[in-house]
């Protein structure tokens, strides 16, 4: 059986880029604060070198790396399991059998609302809160998935076969 991988919405790429830009901005703000309070060793490195490094890092993460992460993110729904692959450098593929799903959560943060995307978090009883979150779904797709998964869970045949072991 081959798995049909589905890419997230295109706007998820812009979302990732903006998200990483925000992280870099916060980092920059901390840097400026340190500079103003004279914590940084200014004498060692001229300030414009630091700004240049920050700019290059921002360009790298927000333009290149974010879109690369987008490229390697995909999900797949088969009859029996939900799959998600993600990570550009450290790649991982996670599989959650549908009959192990405990509950499903539809999530949409403020920034995601701007881009018109949503997340679907799938929880199992696995330890460490390690669960599956499908990012960058169109809200109606996410909602439909949620309904479908809940129906699947509810109709799960369990325990009846347990007795004959």
């Amino acid at each position: 059986m081959t798995i049909q991988w589905v890419a997230p919405e295109q706007s998820y790429r812009s979302y990732l880029q903006l998200h990483s830009l925000f992280s870099m901005l916060i980092l920059g703000a901390i840097g400026i604060a340190l500079y103003l309070f004279e914590v940084t060793p200014i004498n060692l490195v001229p300030w414009w070198v630091l700004v240049l490094i920050w700019l290059l890092l921002t360009l790298f993460f927000s333009v290149f790396f974010a879109s690369r992460r987008f490229l390697f993110t995909a999900y797949a729904r088969t009859e029996e399991a939900m799959h998600l692959k993600h990570g550009a450098l450290f790649r991982s593929i996670r599989a959650v059998p549908l009959n192990r799903i405990q509950h499903v959560e539809y999530k949409q943060a403020f920034l995601e609302r701007l881009f018109g995307i949503a997340r679907l978090a799938i929880y199992t009883a696995g330890s460490g809160g390690a669960d599956l979150t499908l990012p960058g779904l169109a809200p109606d797709v996410a909602m439909r998935f949620k309904e479908e998964l809940l129906t699947t869970i509810a109709n799960e045949p369990t325990e009846d076969v347990d007795g004959n072991e």
Binding site: G87, L89, F90, R91, S92, I93, R94, A95, V96, P97, R100, T124, A125, G126, A130, D131, L132
Partner: peptide, 11 residues
């Protein structure tokens, strides 16, 4: 009793 299966790969 497995709940999730991951395969991971770094560089």
């Amino acid at each position: 009793k497995i709940q999730q299966i991951d395969v991971v790969q770094g560089p």
